[in-house]
Each structure stands twice: as structure tokens, then as C-alpha cells.
Amino acid sequence: MSSLKRKDLLDIQSLSLEEINLICKSARYFKDIFTRSVKSVPVLRGKTVCTLFYEPSTRTRISFELAAKRLSADMINVSVSTSSVVKGESLIDTVHTLEAMKADYIVMRHAASLAPHFLSKNIKASVINAGDGFHAHPTQALLDAYSILERKSSLEGLRIGIVGDIRHSRVARSDIEVFKKLGAKVVLCGPPTLVPDEFKIYGVDITYNLDEVLPDLDVINMLRIQKERQKGSLFPSLREYHRLFALTEDRMARCKPDVILMHPGPINRGIEVDNSVVESPNIIMNEQVTNGVAVRMAIFYLLAGGAPLEEMKEESAG
């Protein structure tokens, strides 16, 4: 298999293990390409990629944009504030307009869960989910898996902790799915208001005591805590949250020496992760950002039908 035999990339659930491995393998080639001096290849020349963001985002949108440009695609950015969306145009009509302009790929971020799934059933263009509601953020999960694979040869048997607001996190859901598919053991940690029992359906462990699991973890993914959750009484104060669940210097000292610390960004320094920990060599936030571009290049490339990678490397070298 050298391409993804699918129109859309909507979630991890619908990806096979083979497809996940293919994306990670291809991402390695693209990382080589865009970390050298001539950074682009003509894989998507003449194709149009449209990012359609119904929710503010900087890093994900820029990452997709950079990935598309490195592949020589034409780019359009549509964000809610500048489009007719503010005039009350429906999602379907907005996207039909983009399709009429012959956009080949729609990269969509939306606050409503399943919005990209709904869209994909009703349009011909490829839809790539850049995050929908609390539901899925497949490209983030794939870049997380890829980033771990750069440091460990495999995820098989690794113990991965995901800490924080699991309930409202699309990153957590997609991470759990990709980590489980790759054979890792996943433990979720946070207060019961943010880690509902229903998550056990994924075959994960749940703990409310971070200190209890800390020494066993090979990877810790600290999720961003949304300050507004406090208003819904999901936790009483940031101070208490920090005391119970933040990655502090003390806790850091009790982790495995080669523990991998991840964060999907943007980070709340001093809330979920202490300042001193952010500077630790174990934290791979910046690698995650770099790898995000490589993984997204791989996804575009594979959705476009792929091509022998060796051939492409030669062409780009020329």
C-alpha cells in the first residue's frame, strides 16, 4: 500500500493500523525534506487546499498551510470573521462555494462535533478534520504518535498517561485511539468531573491520583486546562487543580529519567505545567510542532494518491 484509499481523513477510529503506520513512515521522508535547505516538493502542484476555520487556531492552521505550501499546493485561508459565514450562510452552502471554485482539499476546524463528517457526506472534495468539537483531532494524534516513535522504536507496551480535561478534549479522544491501536497502555488522569467513567469503553485505566501512576509512565501528555471550565464547577479553583494535577518540579523528579513529556499547546505555564518543567529536555513540545508539518505533508501526499517516495526525493533534490 502506498496511498490512503479514502476520500477524507475524519478521525482515528476509521483508520486501520496499516494506514497509521503508513502515515508515520511517510512523515519521516517529509521531515527529511523540509528540514533541509530546499524545502518543497511538487506533489500537490496545481491542487488547491482550503483551510476553513470556524474556530480560532494559530498553530494548526499554520501547520496545515505550511505543509500544503511545501507540497506546492495553492492555498486559500477562510476564517469565520472574513467570510460570508458571519452573514449567516450555512456550512453546506459555504463549502459548495469553495467546491465550485475547485478546491481539492478542505481542511476544517469546527466547534461542533461531527461537522466534518456531516460535510464529507455532502461534498466531493477531500475533507481533512483539523479538530471538531470535543470529538476528534486526528492529525494532532498522528503527530503525537509519530513524535513518540522518533524517541522510542515502538509504542507496543508503553505506558502513556493523559492528564487533564479529558471530557472536553478532542486531542485526548484521538490520542487514546491512536495509542491503543499502536499497542500502548493508556491511563487517564484528572478529577472525575473531567474524566467520566464512560471513557473505559476505550479500554483505558482511569486514576484520580497522578502521584500513584507517575513513576510508571513512559509518556505523559499534559492537556491544556481551559480556565472557563471552573465556572461550570468542574473543578473549584486553579490552585487546587494545580496542586492535584500539575506537572511540578517535585513530580518531575519522581518520573522515569527518560520520560517523554508532551503538550498539544498552547501551554498554560504555571497551571498544568510549571515553568521549570517547560525548560526540561524531556519535554518535546517544539518537536511536536515540527513533526506536525511533516505528518500533515504525509497526509496530503497519501490522500492525493501517493507516488513512489524515492522518485520524489530525487526530483526535489534536483
Binding site: 462535533s113 461531527l114 468539537g133 470535543f134 470529538h135 478532542r170 479522544r173 471513557f199 469503553i201
Partner: peptide
């Protein structure tokens, strides 16, 4: 509210 709402990320 249940397993399906959790999997789908819907409130």
C-alpha cells in the same frame, strides 16, 4: 449521555 456521546464528543 453515555458511551456514544463520549465517543462522538457530543454533549
Amino acid at each position: 449521555e453515555g458511551v456514544n456521546s463520549t465517543l462522538l464528543g457530543l454533549k
